[in-house]
Amino acid sequence: MFVSDEATILHADLDAFYASVEQRDDPGLRGRPVIVGTGVVLAASYEAKAHGVRTAMSGALARRLCPRAVVVRPRMSAYTEASRAVFAIFRATTPLVEGLSIDEAFLDADGLGAPPADVAARLRRTVAEEVGLPITVGVARTKFLAKVASGVAKPDGLLVVPPDAEPEFLRPLPVRSLWGVGRATAARLARYGVTTVGDVADMPESTLVSLLGPAAAGHLRALAHNRDPRPVRTGVRRRSMGAQRALGRRRRSPEELDAMLVGLVDRLSGRLRAARRVCRTVTLRLRFGDYARATRSRTLPQATAETARILETARALLAAAAPAIAERGLTLIGVSLGDLRDDRAVQLALPLDGAGGAGGDADAAVDGIRDRFGSSAITRAVLLGRDQGLSVPMLPD
């Protein structure tokens, strides 16, 4: 597969998106720590992040870490409108836009008649002037490096990695900069003195395979040498999507695991609605303290993109795995949604049909939606077979 010899791929990522929209719309919140979400943190401003507040953290823990934070309820319609405006700017910049979520995308600036750095700078100015939001852009030769560059440049920055500067930029970065390296993998590598991307690149392949297995070793070795041939793709229809979180070796309480599960499901269901798609299969992915892995799946009677219904199913799967988790510990939790299809194929139905099944009841599900999104979201969710109150713009999936 062809990979450009020039740094033409942009990774554009809105900074603390939900929180930034709240600060934009309420001048009284600017410069103050802002937490979006009550039961679970959906977003945190950089002022709140400075106190250790993170997405998917329980609201109670976030308020203990940052007692002066302003906690606001999500306004999904405002985030929808902002995302649509930003993606319109993306598509006015280049036809090659690959949306990753409501607030980030890859863009290909090749052949636009201007240096990619200038394209990125103009993009940032336009988003700031027309939408009023900060956005960070990384520019590099590959998708992987562009995303790493945007992470280094945050918040509200621009970083270009020229091809001849790739080793100098990449090698000193911590090993967790590599996709797929969480706390547990980083700790395992650190025991062998591997703490940077350069260490991974220099490590004998056989040693890396013995530590991580052939698939993970090949993946990390390729990234450490910036080998990522994937082009920016538009209009790709995935058959599944997933998200996961590494937990490290510390034992997590059931409440902490539930908060993490809520964050993962909220992110994935948002991506489903953004792509106008629904799922039928919910899969829970676990990695235990002994590094053994397990998956548990459940197929729903009707395809859905509802946060409450997917969360109910995921919670039931997690409850079934609770004895094994208590005995063996847990170092990673993930959720994937499969059997994806266009949402127009779904029949209208009450979103809480069957909520008395495994893992929850209708009243609890309704209370959860009301707590996070307000009473109006309940009405909209009952009218349609998915959370209209949580709808987000249609982005390429």
Rank of each mutant, 00 (worst) to 15 (best):
L390N: 09
R298H: 10
Q244S: 15
L247Q: 05
L348C: 14
L178H: 04
V181Y: 02
L159D: 08
A275T: 06
A246T: 13
G235Q: 06
E81Y: 01
T234S: 11
D387F: 00
D13C: 07
L107W: 01
P95F: 05
K49R: 14
R63I: 02
A121V: 00
R298K: 10
G360F: 11
I102V: 13
H11E: 07
R280S: 12
F144Y: 04
P162D: 04
A322Y: 11
A88Q: 14
G356D: 12
R141E: 07
I325L: 09
S77G: 12
T281V: 14
S240P: 10
D258I: 00
R75M: 04
S336T: 09
Y79S: 00
T283F: 11
R221G: 09
P115L: 07
P351Y: 05
V278L: 09
R245I: 12
V282W: 00
S4A: 15
E168K: 11
G338I: 08
A88P: 08
Y192C: 10
G270Q: 07
T304Q: 05
D202M: 12
S253P: 06
A316C: 09
H11K: 12
L173E: 08
A69W: 02
L384P: 14
E255A: 11
A62Y: 05
V34A: 05
I333G: 02
V21E: 04
L61Y: 10
T126N: 09
G198V: 07
V119W: 07
G389Y: 00
D367W: 13
R370Q: 09
Y46M: 02
A355M: 11
P396G: 13
G138Y: 03
R68L: 12
G31N: 10
E168D: 14
L123F: 10
M394R: 15
D156S: 08
D228A: 06
L96E: 12
R386K: 14
A60H: 15
G270D: 04
L284G: 08
E129N: 07
G360D: 10
T304G: 01
S101H: 05
G389A: 09
A243L: 13
V262G: 09
S210I: 04
G59C: 09
R221E: 07
A120V: 00
A246I: 07
V209N: 02
R293M: 12
D5N: 14
L65S: 07
Q347D: 15
L284T: 03
A12Y: 05
D371M: 14
R341T: 15
S4W: 13
A243Q: 11
L65T: 04
V335H: 01
E255V: 03
S150N: 04
Y291W: 14
P204L: 06
S297D: 12
R252N: 08
R238N: 12
R386H: 15
G157V: 06
